[in-house]
Every structure is written in C-alpha cells, then in structure tokens.
Write a protein that binds this DNA or RNA. Structure first.
Lengths: 103, 103
DNA sequence: ATGTTTATTCGAAAATAATCGAACTGCCTT
DNA sequence: AAGGCAGTTCGATTATTTTCGAATAAACAT
C-alpha cells in the first residue's frame, strides 16, 4: 500500500496566466509537458533529458509552482501529471491549444 | 498619401511557440496585446502605461520579434496590430484562448 | 542498520531579461 | 532649415532565471 504525500502546488484559483505561459515558454519544460500529455503519468526519472538531475528538478519545480503539473509521491518516485481540469476551468482551451501546437 | 514602411518581423514560418509564449508571459506585454485585440489597431503612444518610452519600446520590440505584433509606420507614428492570421495558421487556437483567458 | 534509488534543496556562477536616461532617426509642420 | 513629435537605439544597471555540483531527505531493500 503506497503512501501518497501531497506536494506544494497552487490552488486552482491562484493559478496565474502569466506564470503558466512563462513555465511553458521554456523548451525543456515544454518537452516535459508534451511527454506527460502523451503518457498521462510520468515519473521524473523517465525523462531521458541530457541534463543534471538538479537542473531537471528545477524545471519540475517551475512547472509545479505555475500550476501546470501536479506531482505525487509513490514509493520513492514522483509521479507527474498535468492539471488539465484546473487549467481548463481557469483558462479554457489554453493548455489544449498549446499542447496541440507543440506536438 | 501616407508612406508605409515595413518593420522587421519574422516570417510566418519562423514564428516559434516558445518565443510567443515568452512574449505573452509578461503582464505589461499581455496588457498591450489585450488592448490591441480589443481595438484592432493601436499606436504605441495610445498606451497610457506609466513607464518610460524606452522601456515600452523594448516591450514592443519583444512582441514584434516574437511574431505576435505587426507594426507599420503611418506618418510619424507606429500602428500596431496582432498577427492573428499568421498565429492562427501556425498555432491554431493558441492566441484566441490566451486572449480570452486574459480578458 | 546500511546501502541504494529517486529526487529535492542549497549556494554560487553564468546567462537572460527588464529597466531607464540620454542620444538619435524619421516624419511632419512651419 | 529649424523645431516638434513619435519611437527607437545605445549603454549601463539591476533583477530574474538558468545551470550545476555537493549535500540532503524519503522510501525501499537487504
């Protein structure tokens, strides 16, 4: 029975458009988002991006703090997903269009 | 008969998503874009944003170089418009959704 | 208990971006 | 030709972001 630890993320109402756009304006983070969009659920370790772990961790932090990505702990890894419903509720169509454009 | 000078802007095919998103991730630039979206055509001077002209000019430059805004000279002022068709062709729905979300 | 895996945090360095005043260019008016 | 107006460009400053290695934490396995 895996323990689920909640990670710090903004509430739906606190998600701001400019932070979301900033988060998505970085190519590495966009790549991360596209991969999550395709797979639904991806652990941090599953990204074979040639980059130190601390840098990658920074990008996940930006994605989380902007409200784009939700992460939950499962065992000793973090599973990432997109906050599709929250973003759709707050900024309808934005994430969909960006993901479609980025694919 | 006003002279129309063309200003440096990327071709449709050279517009990149991450530059567009970066351009829109700044609150001042978003405000500019929203005003143009509402009015259709706006001269640089018509923005009563409390900020030195050089700073404002910098933001227009970012918007232009990202492909979001087109500027043409008419007399001694610059008229700005959104590159809606180009953006729609390249990243369908993105600008619409962002403008709707930002309004 | 010790070690392993997964990922974060810390702190400092390097790269980008934003800000502003001053000087400049283009166009119009007189 | 001289002056005014709209914006840009230059150069310097500051602020924010990105990057990375080293140290740390949390969960699991042995």
């Amino acid at each position: 029975m895996p323990k689920h630890t909640e990670i710090q993320q903004p509430l739906r109402g606190d998600i701001s458009l400019h932070k979301v756009l900033h988060a998505l304006s970085d190519p590495v983070r966009m790549e991360i988002v596209l991969k999550i969009a395709r797979a639904g659920q991806v652990a941090c370790g599953a990204f074979d991006i040639p980059m130190p772990k601390s840098t990658l961790s920074h990008h996940f932090k930006v994605l989380r703090e902007s409200g784009v990505v939700a992460s939950r702990r499962e065992g000793n890894e973090l599973i990432n997903s997109l906050r599709f419903e929250d973003l759709q509720a707050r900024f309808p169509g934005v994430l969909d269009a960006i993901i479609a454009a980025g694919s």
